[in-house]
Design a protein around this nucleic acid. Structure first.
Length: 332
RNA sequence: CCAUGGGUGGCAGAACGGUUUAUGCAACAGACUGUAAAUCUGUACUAAGUAGGUUCGACUCCUACCCCAUGGA
C-alpha cells in the first residue's frame, strides 16, 4: 500500500483532532507538516497537543497521542534553522517508513509550502544554499540586490513578480539560483543526488486524498481568540521564558513567528499589559489564518469540509473509507 | 481640592497655524520553487474629549467644562 491521506486547513480548524480519529480508524500514523512543530521545545504555542484530552507519550523520533504515532515533531533544535529542504528530506523518509510498516500516513498540514514540496517536489531544492554568497548578499540593500540580479540573470529578474522583486530574501535566493546555473556542470551531481530526495513520494493521484477543513472567518477568529487565552493559561509565556533560559536568543525567537515574535517582545518588556499581549497575539494569528486561506484556496483536488457542521467528521469518514477500501478497484 | 502632564484613526504613537495630517500594528486583498507561523506587495481606514473663542485659516493658540496619569493636601 502506498496511499497517503492529507488533512489541510488553516490554524485552529481542528486538523489534529480529526487526523487522530482517522488514524485510529484506518490504521494510520500522523505526519505533521508544520514549519514550527519541527522544533524541539516549541510545544504550547505551536499546538502540538490537540484540542481534546489525550494521553501523551514522547519518544525520541515521534510522539504518541492516544497511542497514535505522530512524526515530524521535535526534529531539530530551535537555534538551528530548518527549511523546506530539510522537511522534504526528513518527511520523505518518515513517510517511506510508515508505508514499509503497512500503515497509512496521514499528513497534517498547516504549512502550505511544505505540503506542496513533499507532495509535488520542488525542483530547485536541488540547488543548495551558498552560505558565503548569502553572507555577502545580506549586506546588500534591496536596490543593490535588484541590480545584481538584473546583471547576472535578466531572465530570472523578468520572471519575478512585482512583490518578489521587492523581497530581499527572494532576491538573494534568485541570485543564488542564477549563479549556480551559471556554474552548470558542477550542479549536475547535486541535482542527481538531492533531486531524488526532493521527489521522493511521487504518489499516484488516486492514492492520495486531500481533506480540507474550513470555517467562516468569524468562527475561525473566535476559535483562535479562545485558544490564545487557553494557551496562556497552559503556560505559553513560561514556555518562551524557558526557551530563552535555554539559550534561545530573543532575536531568534522572533524569527520563529507569531506567538514567539510577540512573546519575545513581551520578554523584552516592549509589551507591558496582558491585554495588549492578548490583542497582539490574536491579531498575528488572524493574519496567519488569512494567509493560509489565501494559499489553500489554490490547492487542487481538495474535498472541503466546513467545521461548523457538527456532522462533518462522518462525512469525512465516509469519503476516506471509500477511498481507502475501494480506490484500488476503481483504478483498474 | 491644589499642582503638573495629558486627552489624536480599532490600538500604539509623531509632527505641524494653511492643499492628500506621518509611522507602526491590526483590518482587507494578494504574491510566494531552500528562513514560508517567515518574507514581500497592494488597498482602505481618512482620526483630534466637549462647548465656545482668536484667526483669512486650527489637530496645532486661548477660555471653560469633562476625563485620565503622577505628585501634593
Amino acid at each position: 500500500m502506498s496511499k497517503i491521506l492529507v488533512i489541510l486547513g488553516s490554524t485552529s480548524t481542528g486538523k489534529t483532532d480529526l487526523a487522530l480519529n482517522l488514524a485510529k480508524r484506518f490504521n494510520g500514523e500522523l505526519v505533521a507538516c508544520d514549519s514550527r512543530q519541527v522544533y524541539r521545545g516549541l510545544d504550547i504555542a505551536t499546538g502540538k497537543l490537540p484540542g481534546k484530552e489525550v494521553t501523551v507519550k514522547k519518544e525520541k523520533w515521534f510522539w504518541e497521542l492516544d497511542g497514535i504515532k505522530i512524526w515530524m515533531y521535535d526534529v531539530v533544535d530551535p537555534k538551528k534553522q530548518y527549511t523546506v529542504y530539510d522537511y522534504v528530506k526528513d518527511a520523505g523518509r518518515v513517510i517511506d517508513n510508515v508505508w514499509e510498516r503497512g500503515k497509512l500516513p496521514i499528513i497534517v498540514g498547516g504549512t502550505g509550502f511544505y505540503l506542496k514540496a513533499v507532495l509535488e517536489g520542488l525542483p530547485n531544492l536541488a540547488i543548495p544554499v551558498d552560505k558565503d554568497l548569502r553572507k555577502k548578499l545580506e549586506k546588500f540593500s534591496k536596490e543593490q540586490l535588484q541590480k545584481k540580479l538584473q546583471q547576472i540573470s535578466p531572465d530570472k529578474w523578468e520572471s519575478l513578480n512585482t512583490s518578489d522583486r521587492q523581497n530581499p530574501r527572494r532576491l538573494i535566493r534568485a541570485i543564488e539560483l542564477s549563479i549556480s546555473s551559471l556554474r552548470g556542470a558542477k550542479r549536475r551531481s547535486n541535482l542527481h543526488r538531492i533531486g531524488k530526495i526532493a521527489t521522493l513520494p511521487l504518489v499516484a493521484r488516486d492514492d492520495m486524498l486531500k481533506i480540507g477543513l474550513t470555517a467562516p472567518r468569524e468562527i475561525l477568529y473566535q476559535r483562535i481568540d479562545e485558544r490564545v487565552v487557553r494557551r496562556i493559561d497552559q503556560g505559553m509565556i513560561d514556555e518562551a521564558r524557558r526557551l530563552q533560559k535555554d539559550g534561545l536568543s530573543l532575536k531568534r525567537m522572533k524569527q520563529l513567528g507569531l506567538e514567539y515574535g510577540v512573546l519575545a517582545d513581551y520578554l523584552k518588556g516592549k509589551i507591558t499589559s496582558a491585554q495588549e499581549l492578548i490583542k497582539l497575539l490574536e491579531g498575528k494569528i488572524h493574519g496567519y489564518a488569512r494567509r493560509q486561506l489565501t494559499w489553500f484556496k489554490k490547492e487542487k483536488d481538495v474535498s472541503w469540509f466546513n467545521i461548523i457542521d457538527k456532522h462533518f467528521p462522518n462525512g469525512v469518514e465516509k469519503i476516506v473509507s471509500k477511498w481507502y477500501y475501494y480506490s484500488d478497484a476503481a483504478k483498474s
